[in-house]
Nucleic acid binder design. Structure first.
Lengths: 199, 199
DNA sequence: TTATATTTTGAGCAATTGCTCAAAATTAAA
DNA sequence: TTTAATTTTGAGCAATTGCTCAAAATATAA
């Protein structure tokens, strides 16, 4: 008898995620939401409790999708570092028009939300931390394969990549200059790689 | 006749800036604003026209203050690059608690605002571009003084610094780890400098 | 002073906000 | 079927939003 709900929960959360990503937490009204996910207020609040809780689920959905994209690139590319670089190019440059916003949704949340919604702050922090940890794992792999130049510390390079990913996406929105940004990404990976044939 | 206004315009704009920086465009209500600048709605709208226009003036105020801080550090330090590094450390790490938000106000605007407020989007883009140009000028100076390692292109390094400044401030808010972020900044400047005694 | 121009005030409007809840519709169990 | 449990609906509430405007207060000019 459990879960006789008519609506597809995952589907609804994803649609909510796309709206929140585009308009932000304050910018997306509950009416916008109702239209986007095609549900009436009563059902929404019965299923999710509050706008904030639905936003939380949307954040996790976003984070999982980004993680899947990262892992797909790692699997498809010939090496961990090449996979990371393709991931950067893909997210920052290629997807720029097809996404609801050029800015990372976790960053948007962190930037918009204050102490009135501590759960959202904490969650976006945690999800960003998870991304950094994933970067670290991949760089550890790259280290083992001798891909990292200099005296490499995977945990420190992961931090650098995190800073770059955040900065590059916003810079992309600022400048709109795809060529420059591609060049910045290429330069970044050249600087941490032993290989000289990158790009 | 002209300008018999009682209130101090600059003072009011600065107070509005601090509020908007903290709460964002949507997050700061007109009542919050009235309280923060101690003016009644009629006066506010007579003097500034709309919430959006006041926000514009607040953005310019923010940008000017940041620019002043940058130039002060350049003047106080022994070299352009040392001044830039002190500016980064100061803004990203030292000021982290005293500011209304850890995130750059221009970035917050760019991240929150959409096409419903095209003027704000364009203005924050322009002000960010101005910062990049200022970085370029300083790096040009550093180049002349032989401070830049490798085959330096000031315009490209300025873009890198812009990306880093944006990313680092948000990363600071994410991690709260001042030591790591300081290390990241030190590493960044070490990588573009010819000197080995940085920090 | 008196008259005129300017500025400030704040009650309050129309629209929008997040959300509730009784009633209707639908489903599952007997 | 009938009955009971569950889900969906949408009118609408109380609070808040950005903003207006006539009236009051204040400043300047004559």
């Amino acid at each position: 008898m459990a879960n006789v709900a008519k609506f597809n929960r995952e589907d609804v959360i994803r649609k909510a995620m796309l709206l929140f990503w585009e308009k932000g937490f304050n910018g997306a009204s509950t009416r916008d939401l109702q239209q986007a996910i095609d549900m009436r207020p009563g059902s929404i609040y019965a299923a999710f409790g509050s706008k904030e809780k639905l936003y939380s689920e949307a954040l996790e959905c976003y984070s999982k999708e980004m993680s899947d994209i990262l892992m797909r690139h790692i699997a498809e590319q010939r090496s961990p570092l090449a996979g990371l670089e393709r991931f950067f190019q893909n997210v920052v440059v290629d997807q720029r028009d097809s996404n609801p916003s050029e800015v990372c949704m976790l960053v948007k949340t962190l930037s918009e939300v204050n102490e009135q919604h501590p759960d959202l702050l904490q969650l976006s922090r945690e999800l960003l931390k998870r991304t950094e940890d994933r970067f670290t794992d991949i760089l550890q792999l790259a280290l083992k394969q001798g891909e990292l130049a200099g005296h490499p510390d995977p945990r420190m390079i992961a931090k650098q990549l995190q800073v770059q990913m955040i900065g590059l996406r916003i810079y992309m929105k600022t400048s709109g200059n795809m060529a420059s940004v591609s060049e910045l990404i290429a330069g970044l990976f050249k600087s941490i790689s032993t290989r000289s044939d990158l790009n």
